[in-house]
């Protein structure tokens, strides 16, 4: 099993998961998807979540106090959490040693999902995706 597929399978097993994807936030390209997406179109969802992720990654307001120009490759933002009346959206930036702009997106059912647990799991998945 490949890395992206293994990562997505793990994501969809998170309690309450409706769908998940691996997305490039510069282009809006979905590199892999699983399950459902909010409007039934993973590519459209990827383009929209990529725009959201890009703004978060680029705007000074969301950067740590030391600024965004970090020598150690640390990402300016770790993850994004968005809630609505029936679901959660979690986006976790993936840190790579090569030049990239990738994040994981997990869409969770609000009644069945556990936001804290899902956030921890997604962080672990983002690390394993590029290490294991």
């Amino acid at each position: 099993m490949s890395g992206i597929d293994a990562c997505l399978l793990e994501a969809i097993r998170v309690p309450g998961a409706r769908g998940a994807s691996v997305v490039d936030w510069t282009s809006g390209l979905p590199l892999g998807t699983i399950g459902d997406s909010p409007d039934g179109d993973h590519e459209a969802t990827a383009a929209e979540t990529a725009e959201f992720a890009r703004l978060a990654a680029e705007h000074k307001a969301f950067a740590p106090s030391g600024g965004t120009d970090r020598e150690d490759g640390e990402l300016p933002v770790h993850d994004l959490i968005l809630t609505n009346s029936d679901s959660y959206h979690l986006m976790r930036f993936v840190r790579t040693t090569f030049d990239s702009s990738v994040f994981l997106h997990l869409w969770l059912d609000r009644t069945e999902g556990n936001l804290a647990l899902a956030r921890i799991r997604l962080g672990e998945m983002a690390e394993r995706l590029v290490i294991e």
Binding site: L31, T97, I131
Partner: peptide, 15 residues
């Protein structure tokens, strides 16, 4: 490198 890293890099390069 991991399969995931290769896939991420390769897919980006491919598209």
């Amino acid at each position: 490198l991991s399969a995931g890293a290769l896939e991420l890099c390769h897919l980006g390069a491919l598209y």
